[in-house]
Every structure is written in structure tokens, then in C-alpha cells.
């Protein structure tokens, strides 16, 4: 069984982004970029399934600018066997990415597609569900445990209030939550090996997909600033302030 793992290149999670002064977007020039943390978990899970012998090949996919190749090399250093970049400089929204991935699913016929639950830049949490809909596959989102056996996956999901377990028939789409696994560190020898692995580059036109955005961003602004707070010397003062000044208790 093949596994397809879509990965996204995003601003590193430790960077505090700044809004551009003309309100057209956030300033990401000269900012450190990395693989979306949920996608690292997705790659790790796919590689673990391969190590268990459930999976034969792990294919990493990314959609976006030329530099996404670095993200794909990272995925291959974790253990993906080969990679595909759908290269475009257009702004890609989840629906467009889901359509590109659907075309690749038709082409590669994977038994499982594992994505991160959301990208930490647009915070959408849509692509996996959209891909499942377009490819008419069952979905298990926000997975914290995955077991594959007999043409089915048993997936434990993190839901409001606790956990829920589903059984879905393969092929299927799974999106990862934080606690699915702890991604491994990539080692230098594996980074070197990853440089030799196959990386194919396609264009959206090759897949017959129109990636035009459906949602226009009119403005990006700073969130309202909180007014500066004060430090209190002790618990008694804190309680007094909460009672008399803030009136919240």
C-alpha cells in the first residue's frame, strides 16, 4: 500500500509574524520557514506504518513555490521514499490544494492519505476534509491513534470533551492531531541520502486544475492591543483588585 503525505512550507512556529504597514498581509520576507508541525507528525506516522510493514511506499507532496523543495527534502530525510512538488507562484487556498491532491490521488492510487489537521499560517483546518470529499473517501480527522488492518483503519480522534474511535474503510484520508506521535529528528546521513531521492516537479496545468483563489483577502490588520497591565505585590492585593477594580469575582 502506498501512502501520500501532503506537507506545507510555513513560517516557523516560533516566529512572531508582523502585519505589513500597508495592511496587505503579513511580512514573511526573510523569515525562517519550516515544515508545518502537524505535517511532520503526518510524515512520521506514514514512516512508522512503513516500518511496521503495513505500507510499502511513502510519497511526500507539496504545492507552492520552488522553495517547497526544501520541505520535501526534509520529509524524505524523515523517511519518505520520493516526493512530488506541484509548483506554482499563485496563492493557493485549501480548495485548490485539495483539487491538486485529488488529481495526484487519481494518478498514484494510494491506500491512505495522511495530512496535518491544520496549517499554522492560515489556520484553516480544511484541506484533508475537502480532499476526502472530492475523492469520495471516508475521513478521520484530528487523529491521535491509527491502526491499519484488513483494509480498514481504526482511528481514535480528539473531539471536544474527550476521544472518539471510528473505523473507516481504505482508501481513506486521515488528518493528524498533536498527540499522534513525536516526530523524529532528522540525522545528517539521512539528510544526505534525501538529496539523492527522486523529486518530480509538476505544474497545476499538468494536472488540469484551476487554482484561482475563491476568497479575496481585502485587508490584514493587527489584532487589537491589550492595554498594559500591572504587577501586584501579593495575593491580598490581587484579590482586592479583582473584586473592586475589575469586578470579575
Amino acid at each position: 500500500m502506498k501512502v501520500l503525505v501532503p506537507v506545507k512550507r510555513v513560517v516557523d512556529y516560533n516566529v512572531k509574524v508582523r502585519v505589513k504597514s500597508d495592511n496587505t498581509g503579513v511580512d514573511i520576507a526573510n523569515v525562517k520557514m519550516s515544515m508545518n508541525p502537524f505535517d511532520e507528525i503526518a510524515v512520521e506516522e506514514a514512516v512508522r506504518l512503513k516500518e511496521k510493514g503495513v505500507v510499502t511506499e511513502v510519497i511526500a507532496v507539496s504545492c507552492g513555490v520552488t522553495q517547497c523543495q526544501e520541505t520535501l527534502r526534509t520529509a524524505m530525510a524523515i523517511g519518505a521514499d520520493r516526493a512530488i512538488l506541484v509548483e506554482t507562484s499563485e496563492e493557493l487556498q485549501p480548495l485548490a490544494v485539495a483539487k491538486l491532491l485529488k488529481a495526484l490521488v487519481d494518478k498514484e492510487q494510494p491506500g491512505l492519505i495522511i495530512l496535518g489537521k491544520q496549517a499554522i499560517d492560515d489556520d484553516c483546518n480544511q484541506t484533508g476534509q475537502m480532499l476526502a470529499a472530492l475523492a469520495d473517501l471516508p475521513q478521520a480527522t484530528f487523529a491521535s491513534k491509527v491502526e491499519v488492518a484488513d483494509g480498514k483503519a481504526q482511528v481514535t480522534r480528539e473531539v471536544d470533551g474527550g476521544l472518539e474511535t471510528l473505523s473507516i474503510s481504505l482508501p481513506a484520508v486521515i488528518t493528524t492531531d498533536l498527540r499522534l506521535n513525536e516526530p523524529r529528528y532528522v540525522t545528517l546521513p539521512n539528510i544526505m541520502k534525501a538529496k539523492k531521492k527522486q523529486l518530480d516537479i509538476l505544474k497545476p496545468e499538468d494536472l488540469g486544475v484551476n487554482v484561482a483563489p475563491r476568497i479575496k483577502t481585502l485587508k490584514v490588520s493587527e489584532p487589537p492591543k491589550r492595554s498594559a497591565g500591572i504587577k501586584v505585590p501579593d495575593v491580598a492585593t490581587l484579590v482586592a483588585k479583582l473584586k473592586n477594580e475589575a469586578k470579575v469575582i
Binding site: V19, D121, V220
Partner: peptide
């Protein structure tokens, strides 16, 4: 967006 560090219209 971006963990609430920007608001997009």
C-alpha cells in the same frame, strides 16, 4: 490567522 497574530478581512 497566524495563531491570532493578524486579523484578515
Amino acid at each position: 490567522i497566524y495563531a491570532g497574530n493578524a486579523i484578515a478581512t
